[in-house]
Simulated assay, not measured.
Amino acid sequence: MNIETKKWEVLCSEEQIASKLKELGEQISKDYEGKNLLVVSLLKGSFIFCADLVRNITVPVKIEFMTTSSYGHGEVNTGVKVVSDVNCDLEGYDVLIVDDITDTALTMHHVINHLKAKNPNSVKSCVLLDKPSRRKVELVPDYCGFEIEDKFVVGYGLNYGDYYRNIPYVFNVTNEDR
């Protein structure tokens, strides 16, 4: 599939994302003023969003990375495991978990509980996209870029078949494109 010739439904344009990043960065900077902020980026999907987000945060920030994996049978997610954990002691830090998207919220719920067990001062979440209609656990992200409908989305870090993370906007992939 040649990305230059595709016509996709753009859900979040480059300009909308840039504006939202500035807004989120300002709010997070205000909320974490005087605190010891540690951002935990959930790989791989959040790396672009997280990099752009932290460049919009004006308070000192330390960055760590985690990799998680969902497992189950077919399309049914029955659990989440930590593949690669943070490499530092979280005591004394206010942790902000950054992810690309929250839909079922199973991953974010698991990561929040996992990191809370490491005794940080606080744990909050920030996502680029939120699909509340897909929730399987009760969770509302503390910071959210865009709330979207239940559509299959790609771009700006989100992948399809390990491709398209580099597209600078978020778009809907229809069944005919898959």
Rank of each mutant, 00 (worst) to 15 (best):
T68W: 02
S13K: 06
L43V: 07
V76S: 10
F65N: 12
N36V: 09
D142F: 12
G34L: 06
N175Q: 13
Y93M: 05
K62P: 05
T78R: 08
V61G: 03
W8D: 09
T102E: 11
L24E: 05
I167L: 03
V82M: 13
L158F: 05
G161Q: 10
G45Q: 01
S84F: 06
L21W: 10
N172H: 09
L139Y: 15
A51H: 04
D100C: 06
I101T: 09
L158S: 04
L11G: 01
E4Q: 11
V10F: 05
E15D: 14
E14N: 07
L106A: 08
V153R: 01
V123R: 02
V137K: 15
S29F: 11
D85R: 14
T174D: 11
F49R: 00
P168M: 07
E149K: 11
M66P: 03
G25W: 09
G72I: 07
S19I: 06
R165Q: 08
V137W: 14
V10N: 02
L158Q: 01
E149C: 04
V95S: 01
I97K: 00
I57A: 02
L129M: 10
E138G: 14
V76M: 05
L128A: 07
T67D: 07
R178Y: 15
S70V: 02
S13L: 12
I48D: 00
L90M: 12
V170R: 01
G155H: 01
C50I: 00
V10K: 01
C50D: 00
G74I: 10
V154W: 05
L11D: 02
V95R: 00
H73D: 11
C126N: 04
D150I: 12
S19H: 08
L37T: 02
L158M: 13
D130H: 05
V111P: 00
H110P: 03
K44R: 14
I112A: 04
V154K: 04
L106K: 12
I63T: 13
V127Q: 06
N2R: 06
N159I: 03
T174G: 14
T68L: 07
V80H: 01
F47V: 09
E138D: 15
A117H: 13
I167R: 01
L24N: 05
T78M: 07
C50S: 08
Q27C: 09
T78H: 09
V95P: 00
T174K: 14
T104M: 10
P168E: 03
L43E: 03
N77W: 00
E149H: 07
D130E: 08
N2A: 10
P141F: 14
G34H: 05
D142H: 14
E33H: 13
N121V: 12
V154C: 11
A51D: 04
K30Q: 14
D150E: 10
H109F: 15
C88F: 13
R165F: 08
C88H: 11
I101H: 07
K131P: 06
M108R: 10
E9S: 13
E176Y: 15
L129K: 04
M66T: 11
K151H: 14
